[in-house]
């Protein structure tokens, strides 16, 4: 079996165990009961999404400095994967909020900030979709990506002053969390981070193959007699 397949199998097993742990190992929460268990995947997805977003920023900067397409592949892969995780956060949030707060959505700062980031990264992907030339697309989206990221503190600040209702984060400083809950939470976060990494790797590979296919297509058009075998060997 190929190494990447073994990694996928391990992550699938870990993910299954994380699901089991969230339902059966973590103790029942005193006031919210079963609905609180969504937290193990809600907050963990949030962590994975944030990590993915940070990768996007570094890939954007690296692309503008180095100008090698691989940084652009990494940026677009991380944007798509973290957007998926942000979506999980935005969907599981209201599922939890409805029974607990009584409303699906409140314009609380954390929710609002997540929504704003989600919208910004959707726009990032739309921008990419509308530029044909790969180098221009990479540079334009890198500039936009950096603008999104440098704006996060000011987004945070303005929305924070504007609204506050989300439960305070229970991990750092805030309230007492059962050690078993904490263990399950960290385990879930770790597994989802691994899932994020393997998804980014898969998506990166796809982007790389797309790029090679495009190169080959251009080679065929230009030369009539392509040297496919030689070119294909170089990058794979």
């Amino acid at each position: 079996m190929k190494r990447s397949n073994i990694a996928k199998l391990i992550i699938a097993l870990l993910l299954a165990f994380a699901g089991y742990a969230a339902f059966f190992i973590a103790p029942d929460e005193a006031t919210m009961h079963a609905i609180q268990r969504i937290f193990y995947f809600h907050a963990s997805s949030g962590w994975a999404a944030m990590e993915g977003t940070a990768i996007v920023f570094f890939a954007n900067i690296a692309y503008l400095r180095k100008r090698t397409p691989k940084w652009d592949w990494l940026a677009v892969s991380s944007v798509e994967v973290s957007l998926a995780f942000w979506s999980v956060v935005l969907v599981t949030g209201p599922i939890w909020a409805h029974p607990v707060w009584g409303v699906w959505w409140a314009w609380d700062w954390r929710l609002t900030l997540t929504l704003v980031l989600w919208i910004l990264y959707v726009c990032y992907l739309i921008l990419r979709g509308l530029i044909e030339d790969p180098e221009r697309r990479a540079a334009a989206s890198a500039i936009f990506g950096i603008f999104i990221f440098v704006g996060v503190p000011i987004d945070y600040l303005s929305i924070r002053i504007w609204r506050t209702q989300h439960p305070q984060p229970v991990l750092f400083g805030g309230g007492g969390m059962d050690p078993r809950m904490k263990a399950v939470f960290f385990f879930c976060s770790g597994v989802l981070t691994l899932l994020m990494i393997i998804l980014i790797c898969q998506r990166y590979r796809l982007e790389q193959l797309k790029y090679e296919a495009e190169e080959l297509r251009i080679a065929i058009e230009e030369r009539g007699e392509p040297q496919i075998t030689q070119r294909a060997k170089v990058k794979v």
Binding site: F144, I154, L157, S158
Partner: peptide, 9 residues
């Protein structure tokens, strides 16, 4: 699409 979400703050 690019400018309005950036301008939210």
């Amino acid at each position: 699409l690019l400018v309005l979400p950036i301008l939210i703050p």
